[in-house]
Amino acid sequence: MHIPDGILPPLAWAGAYAVTGVITAVSLRKINQVDDPRAAVPKAAMMTAAFFVASSIFFPMPPPMTSAHFILSGTMGVMLGWYAFPAILIGLILQAIVFGHGGITTLGANALVMGVPALMVYGLFNRLRPRLTSDRSLWISGFLAGFCGVLIAAGIFYAFVIGTLPAEINQQAEINATLILILSHLPVGVVEGLFTAFLLNYLRRTRPDLIGMQQQPVT
């Protein structure tokens, strides 16, 4: 779900760059408050590489679809916290330069498409975490993290693409089209939600510290 070059008007892509710059600066500052800044570099790099690999996986989908890539914004929010935004930006830079995917002028906008849901999920999950004591509650919050990550990203993507088209189009038609397009991502949202739920449970059993939780006592 990357916005290619050429589509957005200057105000949109330049404005997005500005906002991305601010959020990146804030993220880096937040990271330095918690971690040794030296330790942040290899940690962010390895996890960015891992997420990059994970986002290139074709996940099986129920018919009529065959397979899809996952956005993983929700997962990144839960696992990486403030690291999620720089990680996404690095991933986009790599994709744009090495593979030519995404866009150069739209780097800022694409960072927002994926980064904002990640940070939103992080904020929500952070608040919920103390109450996620049962497997079931973790499962549900994992599902929501994955699901909401997809839909929010889709929302921002279409807001950019459709919302910035010239004003000759009927406002109501624009909104309708946007809603329909977002809904078309429901299947992926549901399956990614399922995936995220399973993933968080796996991590709680093996390395709970990676989702900010304590080791469960063995019963």
Binding site: K43, M47, A50, A54, F195, F198, Y202, R207, L210
Partner: peptide
Amino acid sequence: ASLVGHLFIRSYEKS
């Protein structure tokens, strides 16, 4: 999810 989870853990340990 288990495969990807394992990937994440190994990557974190590598870091």
